[in-house]
Design a protein around this nucleic acid. Structure first.
Lengths: 230, 230
DNA sequence: GATTGGCGTAAAGACGGCGTAAAGATTTGC
DNA sequence: GCAAATCTTTACGCCGTCTTTACGCCAATC
């Protein structure tokens, strides 16, 4: 599990910091991929499948936190957030969205590298299997972000994916409403439980053989939801 | 899991911070184990096998970093370091010794809890073991929040489940009515003992082989109830 | 042997959570 | 800039769960 040639994705718009990171990470032996926006970051994360990503929160085309949610919907890769904001609320939001660490700018490069090493440690490189679910006639590939039913592809919206992966990570176990809301919509919507009901129905309509009698996406009244698979 | 009673080991010598952490982690639903020294910390980590440990660096009988090395030698559990020192060298040393995160005192409790959630996320809890009860033909998995009788699943309502776990935590021992009422319904209903009779019956109907002659959920007249298991 | 308190049992009512639908607001893609 | 897709908001009916209420039983007490 040596990380000699681990690939790291850097999502940062300020050229100066980008150069700084590229040089520092490069001399440490990492392969560096760079992106300057949320959109590019999402694409590069999917295409390069890096072993770790460093994400700035203040990006030109949106909040980095949105990128975190997107990536978390299909990958468990370590995510380190870089931010100029030291406020606690921002930290909590980023961490609950799926970030593994939160570093405040300005940061010491030594510390950042140590946090990278720490995050990379114990990461099992993509071994290939395991990330496909089978629910009766429907199959879901969490890596490729695709789903199909009896061969014909099904389209899932971003939120539907996030909710599904959040449930799929704990197959067979109850995931509480608070957990789901925090991870999918962020801590601010922790009490908007009606979102869950709406998207649970949408997922059931798309995935369940008989949406009126759910077999795979089961609700635990007063607690949360639970996903079964064959 | 997410969210079913993860155990957290707190290694900290200052009583004030300890109390603070115990209360904060407790209300979040975590089970808390405490230690005040490196030596006790190492022992408790080995014996309780917590899902995560929060370690202070300045301990009376040595550096917390030593404890980190010891634990890392045999366990991949998440380790969060607490420290009053903000120096970069210390951070790097702790992280490279095996820590997953480094939080500087004074810290916001919200941030710490978010970092705990983040570290706990994706941790596969050693299932099996002590978190399943066997009552004759019925099996109860406290982690997955499921119960089954001769293979067929049984549905438990939230209150039924809370009552059951409350009893299961003290298997073989009497739990007083006051305790049960306080933990399940809250302190306001401490004298509504008839609730207990109603839900005791419901549990018996669902779990006991012969509900008319309870073998596992036994009432201790005037005191409370007691749960046996095989 | 009557009485009292604690427990078991049953059933009806109240409440809240859940599913469902549809319209409005926002974002995305062309 | 427009159209489509997606997300959010709002509303309502149903059903499960919880609470309330009532009554029968047993054991202990007097």
């Amino acid at each position: 599990m040596t990380d000699t040639r681990a690939t790291i994705l850097v999502v940062e718009d300020e050229p100066e910091i980008r150069r700084f990171l590229r040089s520092a990470l490069g001399t440490e032996g990492y392969k560096v991929v760079e992106a300057g926006s949320v959109k590019r970051g999402a694409i590069d994360a999917a295409s390069h499948k890096p072993d770790l990503a460093i994400v700035d929160l203040g990006l030109p085309d949106g909040e980095g936190i949105e990128l975190i949610r997107q990536v978390r919907a299909w990958s468990p890769m370590p995510l380190i957030v870089l931010s100029a904001r030291a406020g606690e609320a921002g930290k909590i939001a980023a961490l609950d969205a799926g970030a593994n660490d939160y570093v405040i700018k300005p940061f010491g490069i030594g510390e950042l590298l140590a946090r990278v090493r720490s995050a990379l440690r114990g990461v099992v490189r993509p071994s290939g299997g395991g990330h496909t679910l089978k629910l009766g006639g429907t199959a879901i590939d969490l890596d490729a972000r695709t789903a199909s039913r009896d061969g014909t592809p099904i389209h899932l919206t971003p939120i539907e994916y996030r909710l599904l992966t959040c449930l799929a990570r704990n197959t067979g176990m109850v995931v509480t409403q608070g957990q789901l809301l925090r991870e999918v919509w962020g801590p601010a919507h922790e009490s908007d439980t009606h979102y869950l009901r709406i998207y649970a129905k949408q997922l059931r309509d798309k995935l369940e053989p008989d949406p009126l009698q759910p077999r795979y996406l089961v609700t635990e009244t007063g607690i949360g939801y639970r996903l079964f698979c064959d």
